[in-house]
Amino acid sequence: MKIAILSDIHANIWALEAVLADIKQQGTDLTVNAGDILSGPLAPGATADLLMSLALPTIAGNHERQLLACGTKAGHPTDQFAYENTTQAQRDWIQGLPGTLDVAENIFMCHGTPASDLLYFLETVDLHGCRMAPASQIEAYAAGVSQQLIICGHSHKPRACALSGGRMVVNPGSVGLQAYDDDQPYFHVIENGSPHARYAICTQDALGWRVSHQCVNYDHHKAAAEAARNGRADWASWLLTGRAAL
């Protein structure tokens, strides 16, 4: 089995189209989407239309929940923009997405961890910033998940981590945003060093799962210009460089 994994598209239609074109050339059996789909100062409506037409196995991330909450109370500008630039039908689609998914008998997908869409599965954050989580923490998050391939997203960091019992946790990185900063639970930055769109291909063979992290060129200047037009100079910089300037 050969599966393409998308996550953290964040309304970047230009990156998504480039990644989908690349996947088509790879001859995969299945494409899945691990959440954080529409929130971002880019093209939430067009991104929703494309993904709804594809009907990929898809889960909700924390930004799906936060987008929908904007219907009752103004939210973070990133989520509020997406809420105001999507239709009710698109928000209904988001509302219907599960938080986790058994993709196949041997594949489990969550956005953050199986228990929380706000925790990084493979990273830890403290006063010193963000780094790879210790093995004991990752094992604890994966407790109770028996599937051999565990898919996560949320941190935008492409990683693969081997666990006990021959299991593998894979974060494909972000399709749509290669850098950002956050103040929860402590201030930290995420940066991948280039504007390329990221996704992963996992192939099952006799020895287990083989992971290939993909790095795809796209017209990131268009995405950055759209972010700037929508008043988000921070996003424009992140999209142009893949770095989060301090």
Rank of each mutant, 00 (worst) to 15 (best):
S7A: 14
D8H: 10
I9G: 04
H10P: 07
A11C: 09
A11D: 10
W14M: 07
W14L: 08
A15D: 13
A15E: 11
L20Y: 04
A21G: 13
A21N: 15
D22W: 08
I23S: 07
I23G: 03
K24S: 13
K24P: 02
Q25R: 15
Q25L: 13
Q26S: 11
Q26Y: 02
G27C: 02
T28G: 06
D29M: 01
D29G: 02
L30H: 01
L30G: 03
T31N: 08
V32C: 03
A34K: 05
G35D: 02
I37V: 14
L38E: 02
L38T: 00
L38Y: 11
P41V: 04
P41A: 00
L42T: 03
A43G: 06
A43T: 10
A46Q: 14
A48S: 13
D49I: 08
L50G: 08
S53E: 14
L54Y: 04
A55M: 11
L56Y: 11
P57C: 11
T58C: 05
I59G: 00
A60W: 01
G61Q: 05
G61L: 07
H63E: 01
H63C: 05
H63K: 03
E64F: 01
E64W: 02
E64K: 07
L67W: 01
L68C: 03
L68F: 07
A69S: 12
C70P: 08
G71T: 05
T72V: 14
T72Y: 09
T72R: 14
K73D: 11
A74N: 07
H76I: 04
H76Q: 13
H76A: 11
T78D: 06
D79W: 02
D79G: 00
D79P: 03
Q80D: 08
Q80T: 04
Y83V: 01
E84M: 09
E84H: 12
N85V: 07
T86C: 14
A89C: 05
Q90C: 06
Q90A: 03
Q90H: 14
R91V: 04
D92P: 03
D92K: 15
D92E: 15
W93D: 02
I94G: 01
I94K: 03
G96T: 04
G96Q: 10
L97A: 11
P98F: 06
G99L: 09
T100F: 06
D102V: 00
D102Q: 12
V103S: 00
V103A: 03
A104L: 13
E105R: 05
N106E: 14
N106R: 04
I107A: 00
I107W: 00
I107T: 01
F108G: 00
M109H: 05
C110M: 10
G112E: 09
T113R: 10
P114K: 05
P114S: 06
P114A: 02
L118Q: 15
L119D: 15
Y120K: 09
Y120F: 15
E123K: 13
E123T: 09
E123A: 12
T124V: 13
T124G: 04
V125L: 08
D126F: 06
D126I: 03
H128F: 11
H128Y: 13
G129K: 11
R131F: 07
P134A: 04
A135F: 03
S136R: 12
S136K: 10
Q137F: 01
Q137W: 02
E139Y: 00
E139R: 09
E139W: 02
A140F: 03
A140H: 08
Y141P: 01
A142F: 05
A142L: 01
A143V: 02
A143S: 11
